[in-house]
Design a protein around this nucleic acid. Structure first.
Lengths: 149, 149
DNA sequence: ACTGAAAGTGTACAGTG
DNA sequence: CACTGTACACTTTCAGT
C-alpha cells in the first residue's frame, strides 16, 4: 500500500508542509513532478487529509491548556454531549475513551480565569455531564508526528 | 500585537497550509506579496512555528490511539522520565499536568497488541514511573484549531 | 508597510518507457 | 501505469513608493 518512497515523502511533509518538492525528489531519486503525482494519489486515498500551520498559542494570548475528563450521568448521550462540546470553540479536541472517563477533552483558554468560566458556565451546564476532572498543563513537554518505517 | 488582518490570515492557514496567498490577499484586501510579508513577520515573532501535513493514521495501519496517565514514584524525576518517553517513537505527545497524574501522554500504536507491548516493555520499565492508567480512544470525535477573533 | 514586476517553485499534462 | 520534461500558475524576493 505505502512503499518506501511514500513513507519518505510523508515523513518529511508531516513535519514540514513547506518542504520543496525538489528537495524531497532529490532524496527519493524522483523528479518534483513525480513527487507531486504521488502526493495527489495519497490525497485521493485519504491518507493525506489536509495541512496546517502550527501556531504558538501562548504567544497569541492562550496560556492555559488543559485536559478535562468528562463523566456522563446516563447512557446513550455521547453524540449529544459531543455536539454540545463542539459548539464551544475553546474545546479543541474530544475523544471517546475507555477507562474512568467517558470523554477526554483538550481545552485551550487565555488564562485560568477564562478556563474557570468555560468550565462552570459552558461545560458543566451541558445536559448529560455528571462531573468533570481537570488536568492543567504546566508544560507541554513535546508533541510530534509518528515516524513511518 | 495581532491586528485583524493577521488573525484572518492565521485562521485560514492554521486549517489549510496550502491556501493560496492570492485567495487570502483577496479576502484581506492585500496583495499576495503583502500577505507573504506579514507571514514572514509572524514567523520571526515565533507565532508561526511550522507547518505540517495532516495524515490519517488509521489508514497507515495505526489504529489504536490512547491517552496514558503516568504516576511518578519520587520527586524531581520529570526531566528524566520525559526524556525516556521521548525516546519511544509511539509516544507522540507528553504534558506535565496538575491533578492525579504527573504526566498525561498520547500514544499511537498499530493495534492493542502493539500498545500492550509498548506499555509493558517500554513505558512501565522507565525508572521513576510508579504506575500508569490507560484510556484507549474508541473514537476521536474531533480535533481542531482555536478560532482567533 | 505595501505594491509591481522579476526570479524561483508548484502544478498540470502530453508524451515516453 | 508510474514517471519525465515542459509550459503555465503561483509563491517569493526585492527595488521602489
Amino acid at each position: 500500500m505505502l512503499d518506501e518512497t511514500d513513507r519518505k515523502i510523508l515523513n518529511v511533509l508531516s513535519k514540514d508542509a513547506k518542504a520543496s518538492l525538489k528537495q524531497i525528489g532529490d532524496a527519493c531519486f524522483l523528479s518534483s513532478a513525480g513527487v507531486h503525482l504521488r502526493l495527489k494519489k495519497l490525497e485521493e486515498q485519504g491518507i493525506i487529509t489536509g495541512s496546517k500551520y502550527i501556531l504558538d498559542h501562548s504567544k497569541m494570548g492562550y496560556q492555559t491548556q488543559s485536559f478535562i475528563g468528562v463523566y456522563f450521568d446516563r447512557a446513550n448521550i455521547y453524540r449529544k454531549v459531543s455536539k454540545a462540546l463542539y459548539a464551544i470553540p475553546e474545546v479543541i479536541e474530544c475523544s471517546y475513551t475507555t477507562g474512568n472517563f467517558s470523554l477526554l477533552i483538550k481545552v485551550l483558554c487565555r488564562d485560568n480565569k477564562h478556563l474557570t468560566e468555560i468550565l462552570s458556565n459552558q461545560i458543566q451546564t451541558i445536559e448529560g455531564i455528571a462531573r468533570t476532572e481537570t488536568f492543567i498543563c504546566l508544560e507541554q513537554t513535546f508533541q510530534r508526528e509518528i515516524e513511518l518505517n
